[in-house]
Amino acid sequence: MNRFLSQERLPVLITSVVAIAMFLIAGFKYDNFLTLRVFFNLFSDNAFLGIVAVGLTFVILTGGIDLSVGSMVGCSSIMLATLIRDSQVAPPLAVGIVLAFGCLIGLTQGFLIARFELQPFLVTLAGLFLCRGIALRISQQSVQIDHPLFDQWASFSIALPQKSSLSFAALLLFLVVGIGWYLSRLRPFGRAIYAIGGNRQSAELMGVPVRKTLIGAYVISGICAALGGVVFTLYTQSGNAVSGTGLELDAIAAVVIGGTLLRGGYGSVPGSLLGVCVLGIVQTAITFDGTLSSWWTKIVIGVLLLGFLLLQRWIESAALSRRALAPSGTN
């Protein structure tokens, strides 16, 4: 069997081809699209989505789902802004508190899911309500942030050729993807994540610390979502309790388009970054066009998602029939 075109790699390969093709087509269609500036802005503009998607990838790899990430972004955004403006907390400490909060929510969700074998879908649905409720409780108004250090972070960027640049947010995104890749590939924790996604009972009997690993996945997702909220706040320079509404869907779409199977076990962290790029290109192209209304973004993402889901099904059934046809036995 061709390992290169395996169940794991083929979707990522196709996503890459689609991403490049879309970038080129948009480049021919719209002036100034095919530039480094547009390319690097993809990462700056979608850093928060990317960071959230990386965390979500871990959860989805275990075969679970985390619906709370969107409202976590809103919650951490408003929390950060209020801490800095009203409570006069130094930004680094405020970020620390917000990340700790994300960790706590992730820990709670993970504990309930792992310890009591509750459905991830429902527990994180409760998390969605809870975070949004807390966020709205903190403030229903948008909170502006005026803090020199925070402004410094927001305006920091590395200049690159052709007037392009990489913002602080984009650098954070790359860092998070790097850490995510390291955890998933080079730590036993990552192997355990994959093993649980492949077959939870087996993983248990093979001595994988299933509970700890599951909790770990939701903690990572919680922290990433909180960090996503921080980056979103940097991007808008203000905190808003309703930011991130529906973001969980974009994040899931990015992860799926990036080649991770929703049933768990197959996929990768860099793939999710690729998925975010695809969503970003769609968004940017529609903005460039100017005549297309913004809702086309949703429709195009829906169509793309459909395409990739059908593709996943096709690959899976091809793999199944290949297995059925494979001669059994070692002789």
Binding site: P188, R191, Y194, A195, G198, N199, G207
Partner: peptide
């Protein structure tokens, strides 16, 4: 065993 991991990964898992 974990069907989605390689033979080597399965032998050393955990």
């Amino acid at each position: 065993l974990a069907p989605n991991l390689s033979v080597a990964e399965n032998i050393c898992l955990g």
